[in-house]
Amino acid sequence: MTVTLITGANKGIGFETAKQLLELGHTVYIGARDVERGEKAAAELDARFVQLDVTDDASVSSALATIGSAEGRLDVLVHNAGILGSQVSDGPTALRMFDTNAVGIVRVTEAALPLLHKSSNPTVVTVSSSLGSFWAVNNPDRPEFNVPFALYSASKSAATMLTVQYAKSQPGIKFNALEPGTTATDMTASLGIGRPVEESARTVVRLATLDADGPTGTLQDENGELRW
């Protein structure tokens, strides 16, 4: 049975990804910062829960140790935890954005690598964004051209670059990032936009279930590889 950890999975795309992977027979660990919400989400899905705050080294280490003790390996890691901000206001705001959306990827990946190396088909998926694509934000024909989310975009550029660099440094593990599409979640509620999470989660699931010879080091959306 495939062992999967999804960060920030108590709601939104992460929750729906967990649901779809459970339906495919995965053993899914819901990683969530808030214990009450995480346990509730795991119980609703009949998944497993680990307390995991991607901005806290001790929390990350403890979560991966728990999975290692119970499973002995990790087959799929989905970096889903993230925050959205539309304004550049001050240094602490920028640090919080990058700590969650980029540095958190490093924390969790580094803690997970020993377990991923024990898998026969290790896969890492990062929920990034085409707002972090230099090609997209400079293309007047793309919707990203008119979205001024500077910090979020920059943090997602970092997330995609980390994906590419990990793919190069860890050739035995598939690392891919994705643009999930504008999705109706808590993050976008104030904007009043987005499609159902079920649709966006399908791209995450596709990349989380790649064969051993699948692609690595890419940024993709539902239609395939994106320039960035």
Results as ranks from 00 to 15, higher is better:
180 P>L: 04
114 P>W: 06
86 S>W: 14
158 A>L: 13
3 V>W: 02
172 G>W: 11
216 T>R: 04
114 P>G: 09
220 Q>H: 14
196 P>W: 01
220 Q>A: 13
86 S>P: 00
13 I>Y: 08
40 K>V: 05
126 T>S: 15
73 R>P: 00
101 N>M: 11
37 R>W: 04
2 T>Q: 14
65 A>H: 14
42 A>M: 03
145 F>E: 07
126 T>W: 07
89 S>V: 15
128 S>A: 15
189 A>S: 13
141 D>E: 15
45 L>R: 03
131 L>P: 04
10 N>D: 06
73 R>A: 00
177 A>H: 12
80 N>H: 05
76 V>E: 08
59 S>E: 09
56 D>R: 05
80 N>D: 10
70 A>F: 10
20 Q>N: 08
204 V>C: 09
113 L>T: 09
85 G>D: 14
130 S>T: 13
216 T>P: 05
149 F>C: 00
62 S>Y: 00
166 Y>E: 01
85 G>Q: 12
175 F>W: 12
18 A>Q: 08
111 A>F: 11
153 S>K: 14
121 N>F: 09
101 N>S: 13
201 A>E: 01
7 T>K: 03
220 Q>I: 00
39 E>M: 13
155 S>W: 03
91 G>P: 00
151 L>D: 02
47 A>G: 03
45 L>C: 01
166 Y>G: 00
92 P>Q: 14
173 I>S: 02
188 T>Y: 11
180 P>Y: 03
7 T>N: 02
168 K>E: 10
14 G>E: 04
122 P>I: 06
211 D>Y: 02
221 D>S: 06
205 V>Q: 08
80 N>W: 03
131 L>N: 12
86 S>C: 00
39 E>F: 08
4 T>N: 05
48 R>E: 15
168 K>C: 01
180 P>A: 06
173 I>C: 07
138 N>P: 09
184 A>S: 11
29 Y>M: 03
122 P>H: 01
112 A>C: 07
119 S>N: 03
213 D>V: 00
189 A>H: 02
77 L>M: 06
26 H>F: 10
201 A>C: 11
100 T>H: 14
59 S>L: 02
220 Q>T: 11
119 S>E: 02
100 T>E: 13
156 K>R: 10
178 L>T: 06
57 D>H: 14
52 L>T: 03
29 Y>I: 08
200 S>Q: 05
34 D>F: 04
135 W>V: 15
204 V>G: 10
11 K>G: 01
93 T>S: 15
86 S>Q: 14
226 L>N: 06
219 L>I: 10
219 L>Q: 02
37 R>T: 04
23 E>M: 01
72 G>C: 06
93 T>V: 12
102 A>M: 08
104 G>H: 10
185 T>S: 04
223 N>C: 00
105 I>Q: 12
140 P>H: 05
221 D>T: 06
88 V>K: 03
75 D>Q: 03
22 L>A: 10
14 G>A: 07
192 G>L: 06
190 S>G: 13
66 T>Y: 05
5 L>F: 11
39 E>Y: 02
